[in-house]
Amino acid sequence: MSAILVPVVVLGGLGLLFGFSLGFASKAFAVETDPKADEIRKVLPGANCGACGYPGCDGCAVAIAEGNAPVSACIVGGSSVAEKIADIMGTDAGNVVREVATVLCQGDCSKAKNKYAYAGLRDCRAQNILAGGSKACSYGCLGCGTCVDVCDFDAIHIVNGVALVDKEKCVACQACIKVCPKGIIELVPYDNEVVVKCKSNDPGKVVRKNCSIGCIGCQICVKNCPENAFSFENNLARINYEKCTNCGICVGKCPTGAIFSGLEQLKENVQ
């Protein structure tokens, strides 16, 4: 009995002793911190994801309190957190656009061709080293799910060989954007339903050969857009999200289906 009791008492006693002396020391050496920083820290999500560029939420709170960071510095918290922080700081939050990560590729197993069968490590970065991955299209999603592994919010999944972001769960922490070796994940405003989901700069003929849903550079969308929201360079159409009104004309005109409309997809899912 004493063989157990003595060590427990000794270790517990020492722990208590040190605990109390540290508690005393923390009072004696207490440093006054900015109360604003403490309040801001309470409002922040506390995920410590580092998307703001500061080491954790503590660092972000101090930076905001000192005025080195804007009140909207927390990307994850979005406008609701920015408003609360603005209340604490006594300023106006301004208009914070909620953004979500979006994978700009739809070339799944049935639509995109492979140039070889990859059987190595299930990691996009490893696959990318082998001649740019197994996809015939050198810009496409490799589908190994490295972005899924780094997502702390369960917001990205591999669907039929292509990563797909769950808009509702995504907090725009940019972890997947940083890890994607192809650089095909981008932040898109949450309200924008119409997105060109292709990053290929190949000429149309090459795109056609490799993938049935890529942007072939026909520029039909550019000509038909009533808002002139499209720009076209390097064989790829781009949408200016500030101009786009989600009218969906381009979605209907696109011959390959490279322009993705979240609305259509949602309707299909419901049906």
Binding site: V10, L11, L14, G15, F18, S21, L22, A25, S26, F29, A30, V31
Partner: peptide, 19 residues
């Protein structure tokens, strides 16, 4: 036990330096 002592001391030094 040694780790306990060291960890507590480092905490103490940290507080002391912060002040």
């Amino acid at each position: 036990v040694f780790i306990l002592v060291i960890a507590s001391l480092v905490q103490f030094v940290e507080m002391f330096l912060k002040k």
